[in-house]
Design a binder for these strands. Structure first.
Lengths: 410, 410
DNA sequence: TTTCAATAGTTCCGCATCAGAATAAATTGC
DNA sequence: GCAATTTATTCTGATGCGGAACTATTGAAA
């Protein structure tokens, strides 16, 4: 039930008449499954080790609410088959027998995660734990699906050099259906593009597509800062404002997810207008372009987002005013999220995350404004502005499917 | 594991020296457990029948993702023991053998649900499905816990006349811990009151306490409008604005739940000030007292909430302005909830719900204002303004605990 | 009318899975 | 060295499940 038997690949490359993917043809690949098939009962054990390893049997048993005996029973065949390994003992000076730690051979499988932007594809190769091994970005020349698929395939080929890729995950800031169809990605002018199938056919590698925020949130859930939480929220800053939510141990999505539902969230009734005519919405207050433009306007000369933040950091009055307004707006968004979803953690990330570092005080002020003083504010974790982080999220789409044995055939 | 053996009741009635609860002493009660103990595997079947009955075995099997054979196996001992009954056949003209419907004998057990307000206790007796059989309200004379507990016990006694009560659930608009302690209920001046234990001791009936919104949301989840949804939100209107959320099939709570986190949600940047100084917050825009006051101020004479709504319905300009502002504010709150939690349904209820009927257009306008036009708005269900509805929620606390065998001892 | 397809429900077998008891192993602290 | 503590293993008996083969009951087509 858990194995996916990949159908013999048909080399039906409809997007590239030059056979530039020759190396795929007939190449022997490691199968896109575990070295040993976990059973229904041992799969959660394997996942727990993958997500939290190295970890002891006793710790897994506690976490999965199983008896110690069951853990021995369930882990034995996984160790036997090479899926798990004992990686040493550990003892923190506590009384009792030391733990024997289990881990997955996380570098035995490889995945590629990509993020599609308007003019750029960011791609990275990761191991089973979503850790980045190599990465590369390319500019998108022609936005036509066929041409983008060709570039994606080329990137996957290049990143996979010397290693077989078990799956590709692609994150897009748009509306995606069934982890396969790009229903609507305005910035590319796409609609109803069966991207997963197209890339799968072009590369011979199982491929999944989803909204970039969904992917990023799944990464944080499985391997990132939200790993230990039952409820957490993700807010990303940058060209747009993104939001992801995990509640009751699973991501919260719906059919509208991907439209960008918090993009025009009202943050500042006295703020500037966005292109759509909303006063002080997230787009007008928080987006990096808006911040750069408002600072530029105040200064009378053109600065970009990073320069605007540099100025704010240096104490420039105009830059501080704009960024602190943004910080307060971010705080109010955080407060709203906390009031409605009671998260145990807030993760702020994205290319524009530096804002949150610089105007942390204004952010706290904004939180306090819309938050009951008796309420406790959960830990707020700030990520890096590294663009490649999006790729880890995208890769996790493929990793999760690989682990669950639900990678699509190609 | 599923049975709760009630310890022999100690008649330690510390709140009433007159032995007015004599009938409890030594009275033989039906035990606070099912007539037959469901096993780990059959409990979900029993719950499914309780929540959705009458229902066929095949339908339960589909819903619980079990085989038809398993349903026969699991339902047989429950039928044998009298927990379930066959209640007739059913056939909608479809081809195939007619279904044989199962149901629980829902009137075999009784529960009491109560809502504590500042000056009033609302109480109702329900059956196993939370359907109200009788109800009664009393004014609170003395707000001291001991005196309120005495009134609660008296009410339970009266409502239970002629039927043994299997559990009591109490809903309070405040911060509750462990379904037992009233950590903070400002309107009563209580803090750290072990209410569940006190009522349990005074009545001899297992008692649970929780936030009224949690209780109400659980009711909608088990028996109400949210029964078929994996995600839905509850918004209540009245003296305060309440919010409850179910995501991924379970209620979303946290330690701050009960403070009233949406009470000062910003709805209208040009709105009136609330007592705490927030401009256009939910308290100032939506609360029934605020609406009544703002209409009164405009008219120059005192009207109450219902009169204000009557005037709005009749087309009075001032009343319409105030109520439509409120409707738009409600719409913006709904939009915010939809944008963050992507519910499949919005349930609006509470004593003040009539507002939503009267200014439905303004509400829709408010939703549209903060909602991406491409996004679909989920069904919005309006409840009744019946105060007794709160009691069904409170009763569900006891019903759920009864069903899971986790009613506390007394 | 007969036959067929569809749906509901039962019985039974074999496999998967679990908790708990008994046991062993490896440590700290006394 | 000994007790207490924690980890891990090896059993056994019980529970729970799907799936196959079967019966039951209907509507629709032949």
């Amino acid at each position: 039930m858990l194995n996916v038997t990949l159908s013999k690949r048909e080399t039906k490359n409809i997007f590239c008449d030059k056979n530039i993917y020759a190396c795929h043809d007939g190449a022997v690949k490691s199968p896109s499954t575990w070295s040993v098939a976990p059973t229904n009962a041992s799969l959660p054990v394997a996942i727990e080790v993958l997500r939290r390893g190295p970890i002891s049997r006793a710790a897994i048993a506690r976490r999965l609410q199983l008896s110690a005996g069951s853990l021995t029973r369930l882990s034995a065949p996984l160790l036997e088959g090479g899926l798990l390994r004992e990686v040493g003992e550990h003892n923190d000076g506590r009384v009792g027998r030391p733990t024997r730690l289990l881990d997955v051979d996380i570098d035995s499988k490889h995945f590629v995660g990509m993020k599609l932007r308007e003019h750029e594809i960011i791609a990275a190769r990761t191991n089973l734990r979503g850790e980045i091994q190599r990465h590369k970005s390319v500019s998108i020349g022609d936005q036509k699906p066929a041409e983008v698929v060709r570039q994606i395939a080329e990137l996957a080929e290049e990143l996979g050099a010397g290693a077989s890729i078990n799956g590709i995950g692609i994150g897009i800031g748009g509306l995606i259906r069934d982890r396969e169809y790009v229903v609507d990605a305005t910035f590319l002018g796409w609609s109803e593009v069966p991207l997963a199938k197209l890339v799968g056919e072009a590369t011979g590698i199982p491929t999944l597509v989803d909204n970039d925020l969904v992917a990023f949130t799944e990464y944080e859930h499985w391997f990132g800062e939200g790993r230990d939480d039952d409820r957490f929220a993700v807010i990303t800053l940058g060209a747009g404002t993104g939001f992801g939510l995990v509640a009751n141990g699973a991501i919260v999505t719906g059919e509208d997810y991907g439209i960008g539902l918090v993009g025009h969230w009202p943050l500042d009734p006295a703020g500037p207008l966005c292109f759509a005519g909303h006063r002080g919405c997230a787009t007008s207050v928080l987006n990096s372009d808006s911040i750069a433009r408002h600072v530029s306007d105040a200064l009378g000369h053109r600065v970009d987002y990073e320069q605007a933040l540099d100025l704010a950091e240096a104490g420039d009055a105009a830059a501080r005013r704009v960024t602190e307004d943004a910080g307060r707006g971010l705080g109010r968004l955080i407060a709203a999220v906390c009031n409605l979803t009671l998260p145990q953690r807030i993760i702020i990330a994205g290319e524009g995350v530096r804002l949150a570092y610089i105007v942390a005080d204004a952010m706290r002020e904004g939180i306090a404004k819309d938050r009951d003083p008796r309420a406790s504010t959960p830990p707020i974790v700030l990520g890096t502005k590294n663009n490649v982080d999006w790729c880890r999220g995208a890769a996790v789409l493929a990793i999760q499917a690989f682990v669950h044995g639900t990678l699509p055939g190609v």
